[in-house]
Simulated assay, not measured.
Amino acid sequence: MIDTSFHTFTEDLRRRLQQPLPGEVAHSKMAAASRYRLGIKPNERTRRSAVLICFYPYQNSIYLPLILRPQYDGVHAGQMAFPGGRMERIDENLTRTALRETQEEVGIRVSDVKVLGLLTELFIPPSNFYVQPVVGILPYRPDFYPDPREVEAVVEVELNTLLDETIVGDSQVEVRGTLVDAPYYQIQEYRVWGATAMMISELLVVLES
């Protein structure tokens, strides 16, 4: 049982993020079958990126935002994701990358974000990125100002929704003309799969540990 008092939740999550992380074991629960079959590994061209998983209180509950990527000529077009992006030279570390990209994409005032810790870095074969999930909190529900070039919609997700085991499903997803078997989370009218689902899987194991 997760205490949804925001202060208690925050302190519990901070403590749990300092413990050994479940990493690959948790990731594998929501990984597409092709991830392991193809066996693609990081190489000298692999780039670094980071996303922000940001919790905030609202209406006596706890929420976090996901974003819907717009349609474009890219491997992650039209997918659900956490706000974030690639590391730039101006970023002193990946935590800074996650904060900067989140501010650019959805307009969150990241100077108000308190970082609690990190989840396990995850390799994304289709885009050849290592992505670092950063976990933080805001003490209030933010106003969102999505950049239309990078964000089609901001989807506010209640924590209790993620804790509902009935939202987990499995289906075939078309990726650049190829059908891929992939587990997903059904969140509102959106199916969240791939790397984002793998990060959520690890987050839930951490929360429920």
Rank of each mutant, 00 (worst) to 15 (best):
L163D: 09
R176Q: 15
G107C: 05
M30F: 13
R191F: 10
G117H: 08
I137T: 14
M80E: 02
T178C: 04
V173W: 08
A153P: 01
L52Q: 05
F6C: 07
F55L: 03
Y145E: 08
K41T: 12
T166N: 15
D181G: 08
L159R: 07
G194V: 10
Y140C: 00
V135N: 03
I2C: 01
N128L: 08
E11L: 14
N43K: 10
G136F: 07
G74T: 04
A195V: 11
L118K: 12
I40S: 06
E165P: 15
L138G: 03
E44T: 13
Q71E: 12
E104F: 07
V135M: 02
F9C: 06
P42M: 09
E24Y: 11
Y190F: 15
G85R: 03
Y58F: 10
P20V: 07
E174R: 15
A50M: 04
L138N: 01
S61M: 02
K114M: 10
S111K: 12
T196W: 07
L66F: 13
A33F: 06
L159Y: 07
R100Y: 01
K41P: 00
K41D: 08
E208N: 15
M198N: 06
G85Q: 04
R37F: 10
R100H: 12
G169E: 08
Q19L: 14
P20Q: 02
L207K: 07
I67R: 00
V75R: 11
Y190G: 05
K29C: 07
T178V: 15
S201N: 09
A195P: 09
I167Y: 04
Y63L: 06
N93Q: 06
Q18R: 13
L203N: 05
L94I: 06
E189L: 05
V157I: 14
I108V: 15
P22S: 12
F9M: 07
T120Y: 11
L38W: 04
E92G: 07
A98Q: 01
I187Q: 05
Y36N: 11
